[in-house]
Design a binder for these strands. Structure first.
Lengths: 252, 252
DNA sequence: GATCATAGTCGTCTTCCTGACGATAAACAC
DNA sequence: GTGTTTATCGTCAGGAAGACGACTATGATC
Protein backbone atom coordinates (compact mmCIF):
# COMPACT_ATOMS: atom_id res chain seq x y z
CA UNK A 1 0.00 0.00 0.00
CA UNK A 2 3.05 2.21 -0.31
CA UNK A 3 2.24 2.86 -3.95
CA UNK A 4 0.63 6.08 -5.03
CA UNK A 5 -2.71 5.28 -6.67
CA UNK A 6 -3.02 8.69 -8.26
CA UNK A 7 0.02 7.89 -10.39
CA UNK A 8 -1.36 4.56 -11.58
CA UNK A 9 0.54 3.23 -14.57
CA UNK A 10 -1.49 3.09 -17.79
CA UNK A 11 -2.14 -0.24 -19.49
CA UNK A 12 -3.73 -1.26 -22.73
CA UNK A 13 -6.32 -3.99 -22.28
CA UNK A 14 -7.23 -6.38 -25.06
CA UNK A 15 -9.31 -9.51 -25.46
CA UNK A 16 -7.92 -12.48 -27.33
CA UNK A 17 -10.10 -15.36 -28.45
CA UNK A 18 -9.51 -19.08 -28.52
CA UNK A 19 -12.29 -20.18 -30.84
CA UNK A 20 -12.49 -23.95 -31.07
CA UNK A 21 -14.48 -26.16 -33.35
CA UNK A 22 -14.36 -29.74 -34.60
CA UNK A 23 -13.79 -30.23 -38.31
CA UNK A 24 -13.04 -33.48 -40.07
CA UNK A 25 -12.49 -35.31 -36.76
CA UNK A 26 -9.90 -32.78 -35.57
CA UNK A 27 -10.01 -30.06 -32.96
CA UNK A 28 -9.39 -26.79 -34.78
CA UNK A 29 -8.85 -23.21 -33.69
CA UNK A 30 -9.44 -19.97 -35.49
CA UNK A 31 -6.21 -18.22 -36.49
CA UNK A 32 -5.75 -14.89 -38.24
CA UNK A 33 -2.70 -13.66 -40.08
CA UNK A 34 -1.16 -10.50 -38.69
CA UNK A 35 -1.07 -7.64 -41.17
CA UNK A 36 1.30 -5.43 -39.27
CA UNK A 37 4.29 -5.44 -36.97
CA UNK A 38 5.14 -6.95 -34.64
CA UNK A 39 4.94 -10.53 -35.86
CA UNK A 40 3.77 -9.33 -39.28
CA UNK A 41 2.65 -12.22 -41.47
CA UNK A 42 2.55 -14.65 -38.55
CA UNK A 43 -0.58 -16.41 -37.39
CA UNK A 44 -2.19 -15.22 -34.20
CA UNK A 45 -5.39 -15.56 -32.22
CA UNK A 46 -8.12 -13.09 -33.10
CA UNK A 47 -8.54 -10.24 -30.68
CA UNK A 48 -8.52 -6.52 -30.19
CA UNK A 49 -8.65 -3.64 -27.80
CA UNK A 50 -11.39 -3.29 -25.24
CA UNK A 51 -13.31 -0.11 -25.86
CA UNK A 52 -13.71 2.53 -23.15
CA UNK A 53 -17.34 1.77 -22.39
CA UNK A 54 -17.32 -1.98 -22.93
CA UNK A 55 -17.38 -4.81 -20.46
CA UNK A 56 -14.81 -7.55 -21.05
CA UNK A 57 -17.43 -10.09 -22.06
CA UNK A 58 -19.00 -7.58 -24.43
CA UNK A 59 -15.65 -6.96 -26.05
CA UNK A 60 -15.11 -10.69 -26.47
CA UNK A 61 -18.57 -11.16 -27.96
CA UNK A 62 -18.00 -8.28 -30.34
CA UNK A 63 -14.69 -9.69 -31.53
CA UNK A 64 -16.24 -13.11 -31.94
CA UNK A 65 -19.03 -11.70 -34.06
CA UNK A 66 -16.59 -9.69 -36.13
CA UNK A 67 -14.45 -12.70 -36.86
CA UNK A 68 -17.02 -15.44 -37.27
CA UNK A 69 -20.48 -13.92 -37.40
CA UNK A 70 -21.38 -16.00 -34.34
CA UNK A 71 -23.58 -14.63 -31.62
CA UNK A 72 -22.33 -15.38 -28.16
CA UNK A 73 -24.62 -17.24 -25.84
CA UNK A 74 -25.86 -16.25 -22.52
CA UNK A 75 -23.98 -18.92 -20.55
CA UNK A 76 -26.99 -19.55 -18.33
CA UNK A 77 -29.00 -20.76 -21.28
CA UNK A 78 -28.39 -24.24 -22.67
CA UNK A 79 -26.68 -24.39 -26.02
CA UNK A 80 -29.27 -24.95 -28.65
CA UNK A 81 -29.22 -22.48 -31.52
CA UNK A 82 -26.28 -21.62 -33.70
CA UNK A 83 -24.71 -19.40 -31.08
CA UNK A 84 -21.37 -20.19 -29.55
CA UNK A 85 -20.43 -20.81 -25.98
CA UNK A 86 -18.20 -18.02 -24.68
CA UNK A 87 -16.43 -17.83 -21.35
CA UNK A 88 -13.48 -16.04 -19.86
CA UNK A 89 -10.32 -18.12 -19.92
CA UNK A 90 -7.47 -16.30 -18.19
CA UNK A 91 -5.54 -13.06 -18.27
CA UNK A 92 -2.00 -12.67 -19.56
CA UNK A 93 0.04 -9.69 -18.47
CA UNK A 94 3.74 -10.36 -18.74
CA UNK A 95 5.40 -6.94 -19.06
CA UNK A 96 7.24 -8.07 -22.18
CA UNK A 97 4.49 -9.99 -23.92
CA UNK A 98 3.98 -7.16 -26.41
CA UNK A 99 7.16 -5.37 -27.45
CA UNK A 100 5.33 -2.10 -28.17
CA UNK A 101 3.76 -1.36 -24.83
CA UNK A 102 2.29 -2.81 -21.70
CA UNK A 103 -0.70 -4.87 -22.82
CA UNK A 104 -2.84 -7.02 -20.58
CA UNK A 105 -4.93 -9.49 -22.52
CA UNK A 106 -8.05 -11.09 -21.14
CA UNK A 107 -8.33 -14.32 -23.11
CA UNK A 108 -11.72 -15.87 -23.75
CA UNK A 109 -12.67 -19.33 -24.89
CA UNK A 110 -15.38 -19.88 -27.49
CA UNK A 111 -16.75 -23.23 -28.61
CA UNK A 112 -18.59 -23.33 -31.91
CA UNK A 113 -20.14 -25.90 -34.22
CA UNK A 114 -18.47 -26.52 -37.54
CA UNK A 115 -18.76 -23.30 -39.53
CA UNK A 116 -18.26 -22.19 -43.09
CA UNK A 117 -14.82 -20.85 -43.89
CA UNK A 118 -13.94 -17.85 -41.80
CA UNK A 119 -13.43 -14.37 -43.10
CA UNK A 120 -11.23 -11.73 -41.55
CA UNK A 121 -11.91 -8.31 -42.97
CA UNK A 122 -13.46 -10.13 -45.92
CA UNK A 123 -10.15 -11.72 -46.80
CA UNK A 124 -10.28 -15.48 -46.48
CA UNK A 125 -6.52 -15.90 -46.87
CA UNK A 126 -6.02 -14.04 -43.61
CA UNK A 127 -8.14 -16.30 -41.45
CA UNK A 128 -8.40 -20.06 -41.21
CA UNK A 129 -9.37 -22.99 -39.09
CA UNK A 130 -6.22 -24.87 -38.22
CA UNK A 131 -5.85 -28.08 -36.21
CA UNK A 132 -4.64 -27.10 -32.78
CA UNK A 133 -1.99 -29.76 -32.98
CA UNK A 134 -0.54 -27.94 -35.97
CA UNK A 135 -0.75 -24.51 -34.35
CA UNK A 136 0.95 -25.73 -31.21
CA UNK A 137 3.95 -27.50 -32.72
CA UNK A 138 6.45 -24.70 -32.41
CA UNK A 139 8.64 -24.23 -35.43
CA UNK A 140 7.82 -27.59 -36.96
CA UNK A 141 6.29 -28.55 -40.25
CA UNK A 142 2.63 -28.73 -41.20
CA UNK A 143 0.84 -31.68 -42.73
CA UNK A 144 1.84 -30.62 -46.24
CA UNK A 145 5.44 -30.33 -45.13
CA UNK A 146 5.46 -26.54 -45.19
CA UNK A 147 7.33 -24.83 -42.37
CA UNK A 148 5.14 -23.65 -39.52
CA UNK A 149 6.02 -20.53 -37.58
CA UNK A 150 4.92 -20.42 -33.96
CA UNK A 151 1.96 -18.24 -33.10
CA UNK A 152 2.59 -14.56 -32.40
CA UNK A 153 3.06 -13.14 -28.91
CA UNK A 154 2.24 -15.66 -26.17
CA UNK A 155 -0.67 -16.99 -28.17
CA UNK A 156 0.64 -20.54 -28.18
CA UNK A 157 0.38 -20.55 -24.40
CA UNK A 158 -3.08 -19.03 -24.51
CA UNK A 159 -4.23 -21.58 -27.07
CA UNK A 160 -2.78 -24.43 -25.04
CA UNK A 161 -4.58 -23.18 -21.95
CA UNK A 162 -7.83 -22.88 -23.87
CA UNK A 163 -7.53 -26.38 -25.28
CA UNK A 164 -6.83 -27.77 -21.86
CA UNK A 165 -9.85 -25.91 -20.46
CA UNK A 166 -12.06 -27.37 -23.17
CA UNK A 167 -10.68 -30.85 -22.66
CA UNK A 168 -11.35 -30.83 -18.97
CA UNK A 169 -14.65 -29.01 -19.13
CA UNK A 170 -16.38 -31.51 -21.41
CA UNK A 171 -15.67 -34.09 -18.75
CA UNK A 172 -18.02 -32.69 -16.20
CA UNK A 173 -20.33 -30.46 -18.22
CA UNK A 174 -22.55 -30.75 -21.24
CA UNK A 175 -20.38 -28.28 -23.14
CA UNK A 176 -19.46 -30.78 -25.84
CA UNK A 177 -22.88 -30.09 -27.33
CA UNK A 178 -21.63 -26.56 -28.13
CA UNK A 179 -19.52 -28.18 -30.85
CA UNK A 180 -22.58 -29.78 -32.40
CA UNK A 181 -25.34 -28.42 -34.63
CA UNK A 182 -28.71 -27.87 -32.96
CA UNK A 183 -29.73 -31.45 -33.68
CA UNK A 184 -27.18 -34.20 -33.55
CA UNK A 185 -26.78 -37.91 -33.00
CA UNK A 186 -25.04 -39.77 -30.22
CA UNK A 187 -22.37 -40.77 -32.70
CA UNK A 188 -21.72 -37.19 -33.68
CA UNK A 189 -21.39 -36.21 -30.05
CA UNK A 190 -19.03 -39.12 -29.52
CA UNK A 191 -16.86 -37.96 -32.39
CA UNK A 192 -16.65 -34.56 -30.70
CA UNK A 193 -15.29 -36.15 -27.56
CA UNK A 194 -12.89 -38.25 -29.58
CA UNK A 195 -11.60 -35.23 -31.50
CA UNK A 196 -11.19 -33.02 -28.43
CA UNK A 197 -9.55 -35.68 -26.33
CA UNK A 198 -7.72 -37.37 -29.18
CA UNK A 199 -8.81 -40.83 -28.11
CA UNK A 200 -11.18 -43.53 -29.30
CA UNK A 201 -14.23 -44.22 -27.17
CA UNK A 202 -16.33 -47.35 -27.05
CA UNK A 203 -19.55 -46.51 -28.91
CA UNK A 204 -21.69 -48.79 -26.75
CA UNK A 205 -20.51 -47.51 -23.41
CA UNK A 206 -20.66 -43.93 -24.65
CA UNK A 207 -24.22 -44.41 -25.81
CA UNK A 208 -25.20 -45.89 -22.47
CA UNK A 209 -23.56 -43.05 -20.59
CA UNK A 210 -25.00 -40.08 -22.47
CA UNK A 211 -28.51 -41.46 -22.88
CA UNK A 212 -28.54 -42.52 -19.25
CA UNK A 213 -27.59 -39.12 -17.85
CA UNK A 214 -30.82 -37.25 -17.07
CA UNK A 215 -31.12 -33.89 -18.78
CA UNK A 216 -28.10 -34.29 -21.03
CA UNK A 217 -29.91 -35.21 -24.24
CA UNK A 218 -33.51 -34.73 -25.35
CA UNK A 219 -34.74 -36.84 -28.27
CA UNK A 220 -36.33 -34.76 -30.99
CA UNK A 221 -38.12 -37.72 -32.52
CA UNK A 222 -36.34 -37.46 -35.82
CA UNK A 223 -33.69 -39.73 -37.19
CA UNK A 224 -30.88 -39.26 -39.65
CA UNK A 225 -28.60 -41.38 -41.71
CA UNK A 226 -26.11 -38.65 -42.62
CA UNK A 227 -23.30 -40.64 -41.09
CA UNK A 228 -24.11 -43.74 -43.12
CA UNK A 229 -25.15 -47.01 -41.60
CA UNK A 230 -28.25 -47.54 -39.53
CA UNK A 231 -30.33 -44.39 -38.96
CA UNK A 232 -29.60 -42.72 -35.65
CA UNK A 233 -31.89 -40.86 -33.32
CA UNK A 234 -31.58 -37.10 -33.29
CA UNK A 235 -31.18 -35.21 -30.01
CA UNK A 236 -31.04 -31.69 -28.76
CA UNK A 237 -28.99 -30.56 -25.78
CA UNK A 238 -31.04 -30.92 -22.61
CA UNK A 239 -31.17 -28.48 -19.77
CA UNK A 240 -28.48 -30.16 -17.69
CA UNK A 241 -25.26 -28.20 -17.44
CA UNK A 242 -23.23 -30.36 -15.07
CA UNK A 243 -22.70 -34.05 -15.63
CA UNK A 244 -22.68 -36.04 -12.47
CA UNK A 245 -20.99 -38.44 -12.48
CA UNK A 246 -18.68 -36.98 -15.13
CA UNK A 247 -17.70 -38.45 -18.44
CA UNK A 248 -14.43 -40.20 -17.79
CA UNK A 249 -11.48 -39.38 -19.99
CA UNK A 250 -9.50 -42.54 -20.69
CA UNK A 251 -5.96 -42.81 -19.39
CA UNK A 252 -3.31 -41.23 -21.57
CA UNK B 1 -10.95 -4.38 -36.69
CA UNK B 2 -12.33 -0.94 -37.44
CA UNK B 3 -10.87 0.42 -34.23
CA UNK B 4 -7.70 2.46 -34.24
CA UNK B 5 -5.08 0.65 -32.16
CA UNK B 6 -2.83 3.68 -31.91
CA UNK B 7 -5.52 5.42 -29.89
CA UNK B 8 -5.94 2.60 -27.40
CA UNK B 9 -7.91 3.63 -24.34
CA UNK B 10 -5.91 3.68 -21.10
CA UNK B 11 -6.90 1.40 -18.24
CA UNK B 12 -5.71 0.97 -14.71
CA UNK B 13 -4.95 -2.64 -13.83
CA UNK B 14 -5.11 -3.95 -10.30
CA UNK B 15 -4.90 -7.29 -8.56
CA UNK B 16 -7.42 -8.21 -5.89
CA UNK B 17 -6.94 -11.16 -3.59
CA UNK B 18 -9.34 -13.71 -2.25
CA UNK B 19 -7.31 -15.14 0.62
CA UNK B 20 -9.06 -18.09 2.22
CA UNK B 21 -8.27 -20.00 5.36
CA UNK B 22 -10.08 -22.27 7.77
CA UNK B 23 -10.47 -21.03 11.32
CA UNK B 24 -12.62 -22.51 14.03
CA UNK B 25 -14.36 -24.87 11.57
CA UNK B 26 -15.35 -22.00 9.27
CA UNK B 27 -14.12 -20.89 5.90
CA UNK B 28 -12.78 -17.37 6.32
CA UNK B 29 -11.51 -14.70 3.97
CA UNK B 30 -9.16 -11.82 4.54
CA UNK B 31 -10.91 -8.45 4.47
CA UNK B 32 -9.43 -4.99 4.83
CA UNK B 33 -11.20 -1.82 5.75
CA UNK B 34 -11.02 0.94 3.17
CA UNK B 35 -9.39 4.11 4.42
CA UNK B 36 -10.46 6.36 1.61
CA UNK B 37 -13.27 7.05 -0.83
CA UNK B 38 -14.98 5.46 -2.54
CA UNK B 39 -16.56 3.00 -0.10
CA UNK B 40 -14.60 4.59 2.76
CA UNK B 41 -14.89 2.55 5.94
CA UNK B 42 -16.35 -0.44 4.13
CA UNK B 43 -14.71 -3.85 4.02
CA UNK B 44 -13.02 -4.91 0.82
CA UNK B 45 -10.68 -7.52 -0.52
CA UNK B 46 -6.99 -6.67 -0.31
CA UNK B 47 -5.40 -5.56 -3.55
CA UNK B 48 -3.56 -2.84 -5.36
CA UNK B 49 -2.21 -1.54 -8.61
CA UNK B 50 0.02 -3.61 -10.81
CA UNK B 51 3.36 -1.90 -11.21
CA UNK B 52 4.78 -1.06 -14.63
CA UNK B 53 7.41 -3.80 -14.67
CA UNK B 54 5.52 -6.48 -12.79
CA UNK B 55 3.85 -9.61 -14.04
CA UNK B 56 0.33 -10.21 -12.76
CA UNK B 57 1.36 -13.16 -10.61
CA UNK B 58 4.23 -11.14 -9.18
CA UNK B 59 1.86 -8.35 -8.26
CA UNK B 60 -0.47 -10.81 -6.59
CA UNK B 61 2.38 -12.41 -4.66
CA UNK B 62 3.62 -9.00 -3.56
CA UNK B 63 0.19 -7.97 -2.33
CA UNK B 64 -0.21 -11.27 -0.52
CA UNK B 65 3.12 -10.83 1.23
CA UNK B 66 2.28 -7.25 2.16
CA UNK B 67 -1.03 -8.23 3.69
CA UNK B 68 -0.20 -11.51 5.35
CA UNK B 69 3.54 -12.07 5.30
CA UNK B 70 2.94 -15.26 3.34
CA UNK B 71 5.25 -16.33 0.58
CA UNK B 72 3.45 -17.56 -2.49
CA UNK B 73 4.18 -21.03 -3.68
CA UNK B 74 5.44 -22.11 -6.99
CA UNK B 75 2.27 -23.97 -8.03
CA UNK B 76 4.31 -26.81 -9.52
CA UNK B 77 5.68 -27.68 -6.10
CA UNK B 78 3.51 -29.55 -3.62
CA UNK B 79 2.30 -27.52 -0.69
CA UNK B 80 4.46 -28.28 2.27
CA UNK B 81 5.99 -25.30 4.01
CA UNK B 82 4.15 -22.31 5.38
CA UNK B 83 3.70 -20.78 1.94
CA UNK B 84 0.30 -20.27 0.42
CA UNK B 85 -1.17 -21.57 -2.76
CA UNK B 86 -1.77 -18.74 -5.22
CA UNK B 87 -3.52 -18.90 -8.57
CA UNK B 88 -5.28 -16.56 -10.92
CA UNK B 89 -9.04 -16.53 -10.44
CA UNK B 90 -10.71 -14.29 -13.01
CA UNK B 91 -10.69 -10.74 -14.32
CA UNK B 92 -13.36 -8.15 -13.65
CA UNK B 93 -13.69 -5.19 -15.93
CA UNK B 94 -17.16 -3.72 -15.85
CA UNK B 95 -16.79 -0.08 -16.98
CA UNK B 96 -18.62 1.11 -13.87
CA UNK B 97 -17.07 -1.17 -11.28
CA UNK B 98 -14.92 1.68 -9.95
CA UNK B 99 -16.60 5.06 -9.99
CA UNK B 100 -13.32 6.95 -10.31
CA UNK B 101 -11.93 5.50 -13.50
CA UNK B 102 -11.74 2.48 -15.72
CA UNK B 103 -10.13 -0.23 -13.63
CA UNK B 104 -9.65 -3.83 -14.67
CA UNK B 105 -8.94 -6.10 -11.75
CA UNK B 106 -7.23 -9.46 -12.12
CA UNK B 107 -8.45 -11.39 -9.09
CA UNK B 108 -6.29 -14.09 -7.57
CA UNK B 109 -7.15 -16.86 -5.16
CA UNK B 110 -4.87 -17.72 -2.25
CA UNK B 111 -5.29 -20.62 0.15
CA UNK B 112 -3.45 -20.42 3.44
CA UNK B 113 -3.22 -22.37 6.69
CA UNK B 114 -4.64 -20.77 9.80
CA UNK B 115 -2.57 -17.68 10.49
CA UNK B 116 -2.06 -15.27 13.35
CA UNK B 117 -4.24 -12.19 13.22
CA UNK B 118 -3.64 -10.15 10.11
CA UNK B 119 -2.15 -6.71 9.97
CA UNK B 120 -2.83 -4.10 7.34
CA UNK B 121 -0.34 -1.29 7.50
CA UNK B 122 0.33 -2.41 11.06
CA UNK B 123 -3.22 -1.63 12.09
CA UNK B 124 -5.07 -4.75 13.18
CA UNK B 125 -8.44 -3.03 13.26
CA UNK B 126 -8.24 -2.50 9.52
CA UNK B 127 -7.79 -6.14 8.58
CA UNK B 128 -9.53 -9.29 9.75
CA UNK B 129 -10.42 -12.84 8.94
CA UNK B 130 -14.16 -13.00 8.48
CA UNK B 131 -16.33 -16.04 7.75
CA UNK B 132 -17.19 -15.91 4.07
CA UNK B 133 -20.80 -16.55 4.94
CA UNK B 134 -20.80 -13.30 6.88
CA UNK B 135 -19.03 -11.32 4.17
CA UNK B 136 -21.41 -12.55 1.51
CA UNK B 137 -24.71 -11.85 3.23
CA UNK B 138 -25.45 -8.51 1.66
CA UNK B 139 -26.79 -5.94 4.04
CA UNK B 140 -27.68 -8.41 6.75
CA UNK B 141 -26.55 -8.73 10.32
CA UNK B 142 -23.43 -10.37 11.70
CA UNK B 143 -23.27 -13.01 14.39
CA UNK B 144 -23.25 -10.37 17.11
CA UNK B 145 -26.28 -8.74 15.56
CA UNK B 146 -24.36 -5.77 14.24
CA UNK B 147 -25.31 -4.51 10.80
CA UNK B 148 -23.09 -5.75 8.00
CA UNK B 149 -22.43 -3.59 4.97
CA UNK B 150 -21.79 -5.40 1.71
CA UNK B 151 -18.22 -5.52 0.45
CA UNK B 152 -16.95 -2.59 -1.59
CA UNK B 153 -16.96 -2.52 -5.39
CA UNK B 154 -17.85 -5.89 -6.93
CA UNK B 155 -15.85 -7.69 -4.29
CA UNK B 156 -18.79 -9.78 -3.13
CA UNK B 157 -18.96 -11.30 -6.58
CA UNK B 158 -15.20 -11.86 -6.66
CA UNK B 159 -15.28 -13.48 -3.25
CA UNK B 160 -18.19 -15.71 -4.25
CA UNK B 161 -16.32 -16.80 -7.36
CA UNK B 162 -13.20 -17.53 -5.34
CA UNK B 163 -15.10 -19.58 -2.80
CA UNK B 164 -16.75 -21.56 -5.56
CA UNK B 165 -13.38 -22.17 -7.18
CA UNK B 166 -11.95 -23.43 -3.91
CA UNK B 167 -14.97 -25.63 -3.27
CA UNK B 168 -14.74 -27.32 -6.62
CA UNK B 169 -10.97 -27.51 -6.76
CA UNK B 170 -10.55 -29.50 -3.57
CA UNK B 171 -12.74 -32.13 -5.18
CA UNK B 172 -10.24 -33.18 -7.78
CA UNK B 173 -6.94 -31.88 -6.44
CA UNK B 174 -4.90 -32.13 -3.29
CA UNK B 175 -5.31 -28.40 -2.67
CA UNK B 176 -7.12 -28.89 0.62
CA UNK B 177 -3.70 -29.53 2.14
CA UNK B 178 -2.88 -25.86 1.47
CA UNK B 179 -5.25 -25.05 4.33
CA UNK B 180 -3.32 -27.31 6.71
CA UNK B 181 -0.06 -26.83 8.59
CA UNK B 182 2.94 -28.73 7.24
CA UNK B 183 2.04 -31.77 9.31
CA UNK B 184 -1.57 -32.67 9.88
CA UNK B 185 -3.85 -35.56 10.66
CA UNK B 186 -6.54 -37.15 8.56
CA UNK B 187 -9.11 -35.67 10.89
CA UNK B 188 -7.74 -32.17 10.45
CA UNK B 189 -7.85 -32.58 6.70
CA UNK B 190 -11.41 -33.83 6.96
CA UNK B 191 -12.40 -30.78 8.97
CA UNK B 192 -10.99 -28.63 6.17
CA UNK B 193 -13.27 -30.32 3.66
CA UNK B 194 -16.19 -30.01 6.03
CA UNK B 195 -15.58 -26.30 6.57
CA UNK B 196 -15.07 -25.48 2.91
CA UNK B 197 -18.04 -27.49 1.74
CA UNK B 198 -20.20 -26.85 4.77
CA UNK B 199 -21.14 -30.49 5.12
CA UNK B 200 -20.39 -33.38 7.47
CA UNK B 201 -18.33 -36.25 6.08
CA UNK B 202 -18.16 -39.82 7.33
CA UNK B 203 -14.79 -40.11 9.13
CA UNK B 204 -14.35 -43.76 8.17
CA UNK B 205 -15.02 -43.38 4.47
CA UNK B 206 -12.94 -40.21 4.38
CA UNK B 207 -10.05 -41.99 6.03
CA UNK B 208 -10.26 -44.85 3.56
CA UNK B 209 -10.39 -42.46 0.62
CA UNK B 210 -7.47 -40.19 1.48
CA UNK B 211 -5.16 -42.90 2.74
CA UNK B 212 -6.02 -45.07 -0.24
CA UNK B 213 -5.21 -42.45 -2.86
CA UNK B 214 -1.57 -42.92 -3.89
CA UNK B 215 0.58 -39.83 -3.46
CA UNK B 216 -1.98 -37.78 -1.57
CA UNK B 217 -0.61 -38.24 1.93
CA UNK B 218 2.81 -39.28 3.19
CA UNK B 219 3.04 -40.48 6.81
CA UNK B 220 5.73 -38.69 8.78
CA UNK B 221 5.90 -41.36 11.46
CA UNK B 222 4.79 -39.02 14.22
CA UNK B 223 1.48 -38.96 16.01
CA UNK B 224 -0.43 -36.28 17.80
CA UNK B 225 -3.28 -36.03 20.20
CA UNK B 226 -3.92 -32.33 19.79
CA UNK B 227 -7.49 -33.01 18.78
CA UNK B 228 -8.20 -35.13 21.86
CA UNK B 229 -9.11 -38.77 21.67
CA UNK B 230 -6.93 -41.50 20.32
CA UNK B 231 -3.60 -40.26 18.92
CA UNK B 232 -3.66 -39.80 15.19
CA UNK B 233 -0.97 -40.35 12.60
CA UNK B 234 0.69 -37.26 11.20
CA UNK B 235 1.02 -36.80 7.45
CA UNK B 236 2.58 -34.42 5.00
CA UNK B 237 1.15 -33.61 1.58
CA UNK B 238 2.40 -36.07 -1.00
CA UNK B 239 3.46 -35.28 -4.50
CA UNK B 240 0.12 -35.99 -6.11
CA UNK B 241 -1.66 -32.90 -7.42
CA UNK B 242 -4.71 -34.41 -9.05
CA UNK B 243 -7.02 -36.81 -7.29
CA UNK B 244 -8.35 -39.52 -9.51
CA UNK B 245 -11.02 -40.52 -8.82
CA UNK B 246 -11.97 -37.24 -7.17
CA UNK B 247 -13.25 -36.68 -3.67
CA UNK B 248 -17.01 -36.63 -4.01
CA UNK B 249 -18.88 -33.69 -2.60
CA UNK B 250 -22.14 -34.90 -1.03
CA UNK B 251 -25.41 -33.74 -2.58
CA UNK B 252 -26.65 -30.42 -1.32
C1' DG C 1 -8.52 -46.76 39.08
C1' DA C 2 -13.08 -47.48 36.80
C1' DT C 3 -15.94 -45.26 33.72
C1' DC C 4 -16.98 -42.18 30.07
C1' DA C 5 -16.43 -39.24 26.15
C1' DT C 6 -13.75 -38.38 22.15
C1' DA C 7 -11.35 -39.31 18.02
C1' DG C 8 -8.98 -42.54 15.07
C1' DT C 9 -8.73 -46.83 12.39
C1' DC C 10 -10.11 -51.26 10.32
C1' DG C 11 -13.81 -54.14 8.11
C1' DT C 12 -18.13 -55.55 5.89
C1' DC C 13 -21.93 -55.20 2.83
C1' DT C 14 -24.61 -53.34 -0.76
C1' DT C 15 -25.17 -50.45 -4.65
C1' DC C 16 -23.77 -47.98 -8.55
C1' DC C 17 -20.77 -47.15 -12.40
C1' DT C 18 -17.54 -48.36 -15.73
C1' DG C 19 -14.82 -51.04 -19.14
C1' DA C 20 -14.78 -55.01 -22.10
C1' DC C 21 -17.23 -57.06 -25.39
C1' DG C 22 -21.08 -60.18 -27.67
C1' DA C 23 -25.20 -59.67 -30.39
C1' DT C 24 -28.79 -57.63 -33.11
C1' DA C 25 -30.79 -53.84 -36.18
C1' DA C 26 -31.23 -50.92 -40.15
C1' DA C 27 -29.46 -48.43 -43.60
C1' DC C 28 -26.29 -48.30 -48.23
C1' DA C 29 -23.08 -50.21 -52.04
C1' DC C 30 -22.28 -53.74 -55.12
C1' DG D 1 -28.41 -61.23 -51.52
C1' DT D 2 -23.91 -60.17 -49.39
C1' DG D 3 -20.89 -57.27 -47.24
C1' DT D 4 -20.00 -52.90 -44.83
C1' DT D 5 -21.11 -49.39 -41.79
C1' DT D 6 -23.16 -47.32 -37.90
C1' DA D 7 -26.56 -47.60 -34.11
C1' DT D 8 -28.38 -49.79 -30.14
C1' DC D 9 -29.25 -53.32 -26.51
C1' DG D 10 -27.44 -56.69 -23.18
C1' DT D 11 -24.27 -59.21 -20.12
C1' DC D 12 -20.60 -59.68 -16.94
C1' DA D 13 -16.71 -58.65 -13.86
C1' DG D 14 -14.16 -55.23 -11.13
C1' DG D 15 -13.71 -50.96 -8.61
C1' DA D 16 -15.35 -47.21 -5.76
C1' DA D 17 -18.45 -45.17 -2.55
C1' DG D 18 -22.16 -44.82 1.08
C1' DA D 19 -23.89 -46.85 5.32
C1' DC D 20 -22.51 -48.46 9.35
C1' DG D 21 -20.54 -52.02 13.02
C1' DA D 22 -16.54 -52.79 15.82
C1' DC D 23 -12.38 -51.96 18.10
C1' DT D 24 -8.45 -48.86 19.89
C1' DA D 25 -6.07 -45.38 22.48
C1' DT D 26 -6.04 -41.19 24.58
C1' DG D 27 -7.79 -37.52 28.28
C1' DA D 28 -11.56 -36.20 31.54
C1' DT D 29 -14.57 -37.30 35.35
C1' DC D 30 -16.08 -39.55 39.29
Amino acid sequence: MSYDPSAFPPFAVTVDLVVLTVRRHALCALAVRRGEAPFQGRWALPGGFVRPDEDLSQAAARELAEETGLQAHDPSVPVQDNGAHLEQLATYGDPKRDPRMRVVSVAHLALAPDLPAPRAGGDASNARWAPVEELLQQGGYGREGEPVAPLAFDHAQILADGVERARSKIEYSSLATAFCPPEFTVGELRRVYEAVWGVALDPRNFHRKVTGTPGFLVPTGGTTTRQGGRPAQLFRAGGATLLNPPMLRPEV
